[in-house]
Design a protein around this nucleic acid. Sequence first.
RNA 1: GGGUGCUUAGCUCAGCUGGUAGAGCGUCGCCUUUACACGGCGAAUGUCGCAGGUUCGAGCCCUGCAGCACCCACCA
Length: 961
Amino acid sequence: MMEKVYSPVEIEPRLYRRWEAAGYFAAGAGAGPEARGYCIVIPPPNVTGTLHLGHAFQHTIMDALTRAHRMRGDATLWQPGIDHAGIATQMVVERALNAEGAARTDLSREAFLQRVWAWKEQSGGTIGRQMRRLGVSVDWTRERFTMDAGLSHAVLEAFVRLHEEGLIYRGQRLVNWDPSLRTALSDLEVLSSEEDGHLWHLRYPLADGPAPDGTTHLVVATTRPETMLGDTAVAVHPGDERYRHLVGRRVQLPLTGRQIPIIADDYVDASFGTGCVKITPAHDFNDYAIGMRHGLPLINIFTPDARLNEQAPAHLVGLDRFEARTRIEAELGAAGLIERIEPHKLMIPRGDRSGVVIEPYLTDQWYVRIAPLAQPAIAAVQDARVRFVPEGWDKTYFQWMNNIQDWCISRQLWWGHRIPAWYDESGQVYVARSEAEALAQARARHGRDVPLRQDEDVLDTWFSSALWPFSTLGWPERTAELSRFYPTDVLVTGFDIIFFWVARMLMFGLKFTGEVPFRQIYITGLIRDEHGQKMSKSKGNILDPLDIVDGIELPALIAKRTAGLMQPHLAAAIEKATRKQFPNGIAAHGTDALRFTLASIATQSRDISFELGRVAGNRNFCNKLWNAARFVLGALQGRSGSEGAGEGEGEASQAGAAADSDPADGIPAGDAALSAADRWIRSRLGVALAAVDEAWREYRFDFAAGALYEFTWHEFCDWYLEIVKPVLNSDADPGARQAARATLATVLETLLRALHPLMPFITEEIWLRIAPWAGVRGDTIMLAPWPQAAQFPRDPGAEAELGWLMQAVLGIRQIRGEMDIAPSRRLPLLLQQPDAQDLALLGRHQGLLTHLAGLGSVRVLAGGEAAPPAAAALAGQLTLLVPMAGLIEPASELSRLEKRLHKLAQEIARARGKLANDEFVQHAPPEVVTQERERLAEFERARARLERQLEQVRKLGGSGA
RNA sequence: GGGUGCUUAGCUCAGCUGGUAGAGCGUCGCCUUUACACGGCGAAUGUCGCAGGUUCGAGCCCUGCAGCACCCACCA
């Protein structure tokens, strides 16, 4: 007996606990030893984070894939885990320290790392709880963390091997330096955006007095005047007539007492600014390259936190870079060396985590030589050993891979994998798997023991992420998991990390395992709000998936959205908007509704708008399914539909024998006993299942969800359940009733299995009760077999038969609806000129027609009998008449008929136009032409009949209204 | 500067290999029909961004234009 109200909040956590305890999520659960492996590795969420809707979206897809394959009998593994997220995590813990009035540097490295681990223990469980609430079937027993011993071992091994092959090197170069975090960043971690700035036009006096032509100074244009302290040249274009004669001379660099040369370089664009560029090789990537070409010195003027260092004039030393700009502008201005300052838009690079302006900075860093790794990774996608879904993403991938730069992998952080490199006193570096190995190397070199110190730096977090598909399976050991599950099957992720993660996994996977890490890359769209806006804290439009699942009161929602804002002044506006959008907070919708929604919106678009209204719609869908199941169960147990109202004791069935209540071996139903409707719904189920299969093959979860929704609601519930009611409620034909009950059980049971990957909980809850009635055994739907479309072959006869019935019903319903006739009002129906087939169909389905259309009587008009005034509907060749008899205003029927005739006229004109066109008749495929002819004939027949009706009604209208 | 998408009903989006449009939500009308008012039945709404082209035929293919979005990139 099912609860009357569908209550996901009660059902879902209970079932999840059961599943997890039963071990259904374990790698290979339910599969035989011969089963093929199917593996997905989770994109490990950051320890710092909590799951947002984007995660819920991707997890829904991964879980659906995993569940579907588990049901198919594959040995599935959905590998979970968490990423240590070096920078993000260190920032969070530092912030906590700051709040206590302390700083990271007050602690020792070890003490700080202890803090981080402690923090991880305390807050790291959040993600796990969220994932469980979302129903994900990951193998929790295999959960990994990128800083675990095993994965750290993999990182070490990977680093050492790459170094041995010369693919990792250390070098001094200009890097992207984050002065607030005081670490280097890779190119990808720097985001440039256009900002308002200025262009300063500075005068640099010629060093040895005016030139012969009287030139006394050059004017350089710069967006960063403070870097002039590090200038080591002024460059002009070699072909620039204005300056050609000055090349080789020197200018006096203001404020510094230095003289620097005027050089010529093709890089300079003579048409931009003044055509003179100050060259600061230590603080600009372009200038660095020019400096290299011309052998210019590099003068670093900044400390690691971007204050002026001792290279600057004494009175400026220690100034922050932005203060320095102001001061230098003032001093140059006072000296009359500023020609003008104009507003200028320019691209400003900022750290993706800190948001601080990135400084090109000269440091020693570790790099991965990437070209040799990129080549095979490009080839793997080119020859389709790996496929992007949707396909187009390979273009993005190629574009980046073909222009890839060496990867700076060292970070000046504490939280992360320490670089396995040691230095002796002379600075000689030893890369080794352990300090002991490094010592041995040093001993071999020096012939004696020498003291070593380990490199202070850690690796870019993405270095360990790049190993994830195989490090989690035990690499570098040759584990059973590795051989069974690697290469993994599909990677599900967003396009935002194609470069950060996908490309690097491909490169490292191929490098270390010789195989691609995954065969397909399903790139999901980005979840946005209902207006296509990116969800963000500052916009105040974030929806927490769990708030959608379990609901949240308005005050709590407001508090959540306004807490910890970077710009507190936004709070009021966010509160207002939130109150407006969710005056009553957010209702609990349940995981299944959320998941089904996420699946339905998983189109191939790159941006996906998320509307809460859709979740509500799908919550209603769950409710629909729930109630359909209640009905079916009632029918199977032999109760009539009135349970619930009648306190639901109902063990004594009114309509069924005692045997009806026993699900022991399901309900037998010989094919012969199946009614047309039974055969119809089975046929439609087969069609739906085939559509679902195709959708799954193409990762079109939206199509799969759509097909199941359509079948469940609009075929199974709207038609079949209604059709079956009179059969169940009548004792007239026990065989028919038995066939209907068997069909109800089988169709619902099968449907639940098809729905399960998308809505795991409600399907399980219902299935456990329904399955025995369908003769299916099992402890869980999770391990029940995937439904086979072939088991429900198409039945064209039944579909045609029901098509006739439905057309007739719809025609009558339209009359009822258009004429505002209450459903309770039984209508008399007259049939005009039925042919033999109509009569046969009517003979079989008169009861159903009566039931579905709410008829009071059905009568065939005799040959010469004149029809009374009536509203008409068409079903095939048949005309259905509902006598007006005071129920229907002739005027209403008149306008209804006119409307329909108008439409028909349009269709007829269109079809005639086509067929009148010889080109069409000659060139179009014959079947298309035939189809068009048939359509036209059909339209014309319908029109003729409706016109006759129209005439009849007109006569009435003329006399009356 | 290079690249990639997008522009279809009031809103958010589908639309497979070209045969002239669909869904969900919303709207309107009728209905306490015994699984479900988180419901039932019925209805309305689109020169498919614009302009050309290919084709017997284009929302779907090609070209151009406009608008929007995103990615990459070293113009001071």
